[in-house]
Design a protein around this nucleic acid. Structure first.
Lengths: 202, 202, 202, 202
DNA sequence: CATGAATGAGAATTCATTCAT
DNA sequence: CATGAATGAATTCTCATTCAT
């Protein structure tokens, strides 16, 4: 009777290790040895579970995206059917502080965004993640616009703007936390989003 | 009769070299050898003019900041005294395409933002640059708000939001260019900015 | 089942490699590559077992000190309780030729003495080693003096003189071997030591 | 009328520069740039006056040797014809503190002794200097011994011992100054020397 | 004579990846 | 599955020496 595989658990540990080290040292500081150490594993084991270092980063991207989508799903329940409330929930899921806040994930995401410039495979998953975000926001924006002016024109570029504001808020939170008054990011981005839609609708 | 010093020129060449390689390969990809090659210089000379690799990056930050501030100064003339026009000019200077567009600088800036997480000295100059941007925008936002509602409350956090939107637009432009319809970023951010100020003023 | 650790053995090999190359080429000539080659190892492995080159040198200092102290301990048995005999045994342990002679260690020690000027950490362990030598000789000299004149005044500076003579004999042996008739160093230093104590006692 | 050559002066400046930097940083720390800076000259000029770095070191050896021989010559006058007084004057010239003390030269000499192991050409001049010292002391010791026992047997090895003690005292002064009570080195070595000759004569 | 820019050959160090056990 | 030793290529940085002016 072979021992039950613990691969899934080990992979999760390793991804968590990368998240931790990337949050403080960036991707350059994330050596296999430091990841392994942070995960409490031997360094050889990392390569047993992942073909190479990049593979861990790709898994981390998935992990972060999943984390945030879960937050959104969780908030959706309280938001009800109103598209504006849903858009606020969406922004909140990305930016609000709270018990489920993940400052490490924010820093890691900023790093992922920079690595996307460098590693084509990371670029692919990063762009896919961004595209999904834009699509989600576009759907919400489209609903809001159609309710107001009967058509959804401009929803796509509004969505891009809103996602940009979210990404920029991450960037500031991670690298220049003094720039944005603490805990206000979600509110400010919500106002920008709604103000933008007002402008588009006008 | 010594050879006339060309230090300033060489330093500029090297900074330009870093800008070029960073724009495609990120900071990790920017090896001294690649910088030197891109600048058409020997690798030893790079260290003759800069103490280390980080010093080049710091100089690059200055360079990029100066580039954009010059664009803003240039657009200010056409904007006249109206604060809203000036805010649009500000956003335009950062995001508009045109003859003076610098896609390489955009990518490099994103990389700088990630390196700011890793290298404390880079963090310092990055935060200083962001702080200046926020202060500039805050002044404009304050003027606009005062003209409308007689006070400037909320200008600071509005400014942070606007700067975040700009930074996020850079991020998307560099790493996920398909997300934002080409050439629309300035327009979208302007609308977000003005919509945000409407909201704050309300 | 992990490979059994051979760290201690590897470290010893590397220290031995440094001893070998330092004996001929000095510390400057001792490159990591040459140390690794002399030890029959890959260069990366050297840094796997030692944080940096200096750490190997510090370990080498310990190694040499231990070597000589072991020679002294070994000779102590034959010397019996007589302090003069013990002092001779001490000098012998440092300077006598014989099966346990270590010409490489002598040359390396001279190099260590010069590196002590340059690398603060090396200076620390070098001074500690010298201080222990002086203390040991001082104890012996004190016994001899007290037996003769009832007090041990002057033992400390006599000990310093004796240690200086030993260090100088190393220096000549390593760098100007023709200056001292071969195999006579121990005898000459013993005579200097005893003559010095005669003078101090007078 | 060509301008008068200042080569001799420049060479002296450069040698002085090497002496200064070697006294603090050892030979490794002595870069051409640092030597030039310490001499107040441009780095290119160093190579105009010396073929290479080693040539400066060789000149420095001469310089230090000359310095000490001058001190000896100066003290010889006061010592008169008595060989014991002359031997004391010799040791004094090498080790006594005073207005003409040269702590930098002491440190530099220790470095030279270590470089002698590494650079064959340095070894040659170092050994020549040591041989001259031994020969001088041997002559004095021979005189002393002949006056006492009618022959000079053992003078050579006694001289080597005395020179060793001097070299060792340099080593301690430079690298472990706490080992020898300050200002006592000359006295201690004189006692060792005279005690040694007593022993040889016995 | 003098300057300091320029070169290029190393040197130390890092680290992903492999592999013996 | 697991460990951590081992490898070797890549990278930053140093520095003697050369050379244009």
């Amino acid at each position: 009777m072979p021992r039950p595989s613990n691969t899934a658990e080990r992979r999760a540990q390793i991804i968590e290790g990368l998240l931790n080290v990337i949050a403080e040292g960036g991707y350059e500081g994330a050596t296999i040895a430091s990841i392994a150490k942070s995960a409490g594993l031997g360094s050889g084991l990392v390569h047993y579970h992942f073909a190479n270092k990049q593979a861990i980063l790709l898994a981390l991207v998935e992990r972060i995206v999943g984390l945030i989508e879960a937050r959104y799903a969780h908030r959706l329940g309280a938001a009800g059917e109103d598209p504006s409330a849903r858009l606020r929930a969406y922004i909140d899921a990305h930016l609000a502080l709270g018990d489920d806040a993940e400052p490490r994930a924010v820093a890691a995401w900023v790093v992922v965004g920079a690595e996307a410039l460098r590693q084509p495979e990371v670029g692919v998953v990063y762009r896919a993640a961004v595209a999904r975000r834009v699509a989600t926001v576009e759907a919400l924006a489209g609903e809001i616009l159609r309710a107001r002016v009967g058509h959804g024109r401009g929803a796509k570029e509004a969505a891009a703007g809103i996602v940009a504001a979210i990404e920029g808020a991450y960037q500031l939170a991670a690298a220049a936390p003094d720039a944005m008054p603490r805990g206000r990011a979600a509110r400010v981005v919500e106002r920008m989003a709604l103000g933008l839609l007002d402008g588009v609708a006008a």
